[in-house]
Amino acid sequence: METKPSPQTKPLAHHFDSYEQQESAGTLGMWLFLCTEILMFGGLFVGYVLYHSLYPEIFKAGATFLEWKKGGINTVVLLISSFTMALSIYYAQKNKMKACRMSLILTLFCGLLFMLIKYMEYSHKMHVGIFPGKFFAYTGEGNVEGLALYFSFYYLMTGLHASHVLAGMGLIGWALFRAFQNKIGPNNYKPLEYVGLFWHLVDLIWIYLFPLLYLVE
């Protein structure tokens, strides 16, 4: 029978010499992963900015199809979720586990809200035939030659970002589960910190996506 680990004890994997080594290795691995994420999104950002400078009229026309209010609300939602995520670690460090779990639930709720608004945006566009690339079938008002280019970028960048939001929600759900199991506590908050780093990166990318996609002049 496995004994329930107390939040006061933290597990040390056998291949590490000390807690310090284990924790710095974890943080290092997380930052290396975030670096690869920056490179992946970076390629799309570079493509977007360069094509924008080549075909400014297509991007200007494309942005008129986006509702900046929805994008703005989503920005606020993600910023608040980043705040609550940071708070969950803060409370875990202070051994206020109830507040920690509450912060995680709020973060999860914000992620859900973001995805709902994203779903509304996507379904509205797909309803009128705005699809990426060769599937683009919109012929209505405001259509310009090559508009599919803008929406290929739009769907790729927001889609990749949205999949990261979903992955982040999964990770937060896992952290919440661990917190309910009492496996996260003031001495063992590192897993929460790694999940937090990922979630903040998702927020960071949206900070750039929002003005780039929604506020094009």
């Binding site: 994420e37 390629g43 570079v46």
Partner: peptide, 18 residues
Amino acid sequence: RLYWVIFGSGVFFVVLLF
């Protein structure tokens, strides 16, 4: 500081690509 360098190197190569 190590994490600065790691993250910064990612940003650096994106800027270089641009």
